[in-house]
Simulated assay, not measured.
Amino acid sequence: MNIWTVANQKGGVGKTTTTVTLGALLAARGEQVLLIDMDPHASLTSYFNRTQENLDATLFDLMSSQQLTPALIDKATLEVGHNLFLWPAAMELATLDRQLGSREGLGLLLKQLLEKLDGLYAHVLIDCPPVLGVLMVNALAACQRVLVPVQTEFLAIKGLERMLRTLSMMEKSLKGKRQVTIVPTMFDKRTRASLEALKELHQEYGGNVWQGMVPVDTKFRDASREHVPLPVLSPLARGVQAYEKLLESLLPLEVSA
């Protein structure tokens, strides 16, 4: 089971878009895919037009349960597309550390939870909140690979430094090194700022940067408004083609890992 965490300590860089689009592309290949919304603001959950008030159970229920059962997992698992499933977020996730502060292994709850799935999914993609805390720690501890979307503009690159420092610190306490792939997003080849930011990314972070880039594509906004992944709404869109190339670059790495 490939587990990828999509994370950055800066908001608005394309984390949810990356999670949804890659998830849909993997699902279209006929493999079962689970998306996990770790953000209390529930952007990923909202993307699929789901609200906490209408849910029987959420990721918070799964992570806080003392007696996790298959029935509870089923109740919290939403089918949001063909071969595509979601564990939705809830505002209560923001209080997880306070409510479970005395529980041992607080940073490993998600990892232990995923171990109970017994190969049900070929791929799991985790959408993180843009802050370092117990939720991001859980997401990083559970995965083998970290995808870091970075908007191709100067301030976003400065935020990347903070994210990579966090990963470096966590590797000292986590077993096994996480593979890191930096994904340039919202690239506009018409602007000097995007061109210079992309050049700086490659100069500063070299082999960790994906060789392609995700372009600005207004169709991402259209797909979000329709509550469907862009590969479903417009499979030939520029943004979809970019994420297809990203996926092709990632999957051989998982096979050889």
Results as ranks from 00 to 15, higher is better:
residue 1 M to Q: 02
residue 1 M to G: 03
residue 5 T to E: 08
residue 8 N to S: 15
residue 9 Q to D: 11
residue 19 T to P: 13
residue 20 V to Y: 01
residue 33 V to W: 00
residue 34 L to R: 00
residue 38 M to N: 05
residue 42 A to F: 12
residue 43 S to W: 07
residue 44 L to Q: 00
residue 45 T to M: 10
residue 46 S to Q: 14
residue 49 N to S: 05
residue 51 T to I: 07
residue 55 L to K: 09
residue 60 F to S: 10
residue 60 F to E: 13
residue 66 Q to L: 01
residue 66 Q to K: 01
residue 73 I to N: 06
residue 78 L to W: 06
residue 81 G to H: 02
residue 81 G to M: 04
residue 81 G to T: 00
residue 82 H to K: 12
residue 87 W to G: 07
residue 88 P to Q: 01
residue 88 P to H: 03
residue 93 L to N: 07
residue 98 R to L: 15
residue 101 G to S: 10
residue 109 L to R: 14
residue 111 K to H: 08
residue 111 K to T: 03
residue 114 L to Y: 10
residue 114 L to I: 14
residue 114 L to M: 14
residue 116 K to N: 13
residue 116 K to T: 12
residue 120 L to K: 09
residue 121 Y to W: 03
residue 123 H to W: 04
residue 125 L to Q: 03
residue 127 D to R: 03
residue 128 C to N: 09
residue 129 P to V: 10
residue 131 V to S: 13
residue 140 L to K: 12
residue 142 A to D: 04
residue 145 R to C: 04
residue 146 V to H: 12
residue 146 V to S: 14
residue 147 L to F: 07
residue 147 L to W: 07
residue 154 F to V: 15
residue 154 F to H: 14
residue 154 F to L: 15
residue 154 F to S: 13
residue 166 T to M: 14
residue 169 M to P: 01
residue 169 M to G: 07
residue 172 K to W: 09
residue 172 K to S: 12
residue 173 S to T: 15
residue 176 G to V: 14
residue 180 V to P: 04
residue 183 V to Y: 12
residue 183 V to Q: 11
residue 189 K to S: 10
residue 191 T to Y: 09
residue 199 K to W: 06
residue 200 E to A: 09
residue 202 H to T: 05
residue 204 E to G: 07
residue 204 E to A: 15
residue 208 N to P: 04
residue 212 G to E: 10
residue 212 G to W: 10
residue 213 M to F: 15
residue 215 P to C: 05
residue 216 V to K: 06
residue 219 K to W: 06
residue 227 H to K: 10
residue 228 V to P: 08
residue 228 V to D: 06
residue 228 V to K: 12
residue 228 V to W: 09
residue 230 L to C: 04
residue 232 V to P: 05
residue 232 V to N: 05
residue 232 V to K: 05
residue 234 S to P: 00
residue 236 L to A: 06
residue 239 G to V: 02
residue 241 Q to F: 02
residue 243 Y to T: 03
residue 243 Y to M: 01
residue 247 L to F: 01
residue 248 E to K: 06
residue 248 E to H: 03
residue 249 S to G: 09
residue 250 L to K: 02
residue 252 P to D: 12
residue 254 E to C: 04
